[in-house]
Nucleic acid binder design. Structure first.
Lengths: 251, 251
DNA sequence: ACCTGAACACCGTTCAAGT
DNA sequence: ACCTGAACACCGTTCAAGT
């Protein structure tokens, strides 16, 4: 279709035509069926996985789909609505474990590990979860499961609210942090930052640097996707759960 | 200076001249001293505090400072470097408590509360901490303090690494989540999302909705700046610290 | 050293018009 | 219902030139 129309005399610059033109001769061949919302959401997540969170643009997404930008708006509303749809899509991949009625701490540990596995598959999107309040059918359904487990385990009232937050919030917030974006090479150089400090500063960090290097909060330069913190995550979860349990038994 | 030059015949559209022109008659009056990096950083944080993280643009910042965009680049490098400078500036506001050598859990609790107070003053910037790996003199200095306290409290080796991450990482990641951005009104409506689910779905959430509404992870629509989660944060911290301590005593 | 003035290559979003 | 084609009002960044 594009090849049959001429736009050489259009006001639009050439790069625009190049960038925006649908590609009927793309790998997929000419589209037979209309674009679906699911296809748009999946393509958006694909861009984030491949090129990073900041690389997702409505125009780039349209190009990837072989359509004009306005088509993306027709299917997904706008960018923040699209991101909410992607969020719901990713959250849905976390299969909430079945609760056997006895081991709520084990249930939480399993939920945490399954969540971490999904975050690890989409590390560049993890940032969205920690920094944007989730409201979708997937998030509400997950909240319901967590409340269900805590209710059946005897939590109620204020105790329920804060235990829910400490355990559930702690898990999700951690994952956001573990898969945080790496500093841009030009912007920050860890060795340079370390060298810039006087030799007698940060003695504790210097003495433990070999041990902690790229394995600890604020002592790392790689994201959890290349420098995982699984053991620390497990310790955090078990500690929170043990702490909640012991506080509750003393009451 | 602007008023003495004419640009009515320039190619530049009017809005550009309006938006970009320095304002010699601004509240501060004509600048006597050259712009400093600190002034640029403070102004950037001001925009984020006032209008939100996404509202910070290099051009808007230049306008606020009464200079041309390129001037901001001269002082701050580029946008990601500027953000790193803002991060260092905010992190510096957290006054790390002095360790008395005995109560490491108390020390962590105090660090957590002081950090939360600073995050609460700059809630729209909190997102940056959770989603971008920190490397600055302030972050390295803070890491050093935490390592120092744990070393003096008898932690070492793998135990040191994971306890450090569980406690310190848990605190910082949580704060990012607590002060996460609110969904845009047009994008998401909590009541509508709830109503969209069948009545027999999410029974646990529905039964506890009054109790948990806007107070719990994934059951809220306001950020921590208007719906604080201080009690949950304290429970999370004390639980993690108790958990770490008890695991360590059993070894 | 510090800043202007202008340009380049992008963005998100909207809208009338086509099929 | 679904998509095109074009426009509008922005972005980040660079660079030669001024002082």
């Amino acid at each position: 279709m594009r090849s049959s129309t001429s736009c050489s005399e259009a006001i639009q610059p050439d790069y625009y035509a190049d960038a925006m033109a649908p590609s009927p001769d793309s790998a997929a061949g000419p589209r037979k069926s209309p674009l679906s919302r699911q296809t748009v959401v999946a393509a958006a997540l694909g861009i984030i996985d491949d090129e990073g969170y900041n690389a997702l643009t409505m125009r780039g997404l349209a190009q990837r789909l072989g359509v004009y930008p306005a088509t993306v708006y027709w299917h997904a509303g706008n960018k923040s609505q699209l991101l909410a749809l992607v969020s719901d899509h990713v959250l849905r991949q976390i299969e909430v474990p079945v609760f056997d009625g006895s081991d709520w701490k084990g249930w939480f540990l399993e939920l945490g590990h399954r969540s971490r596995a999904v975050f690890a598959r989409h590390p560049r999107f993890a940032a969205y979860f920690g920094t944007n309040i989730q409201v979708s059918s997937a998030s509400l359904s997950m909240a319901d499961s967590v409340i269900h487990v805590l209710l059946r385990s005897g939590f109620e009232g204020e105790d329920l609210v804060h235990s829910y937050n400490a355990a559930f919030g702690g898990i999700f917030a951690w994952l956001t942090g573990e898969f945080a974006a790496e500093p841009e090479h030009e912007a920050i150089d860890f060795d340079a930052a370390l060298a810039a400090l006087p030799p007698d500063e940060i003695p504790a960090l210097r003495s433990q640097f070999e041990l902690m290097s790229n394995r600890a909060w604020m002592v790392r330069w790689n994201s959890g996707s290349s420098a995982p913190m699984a053991a620390s995550f497990t310790l955090m979860m078990t500690s929170v759960l043990e702490g909640i349990d012991s506080r509750r038994r003393t009451r």
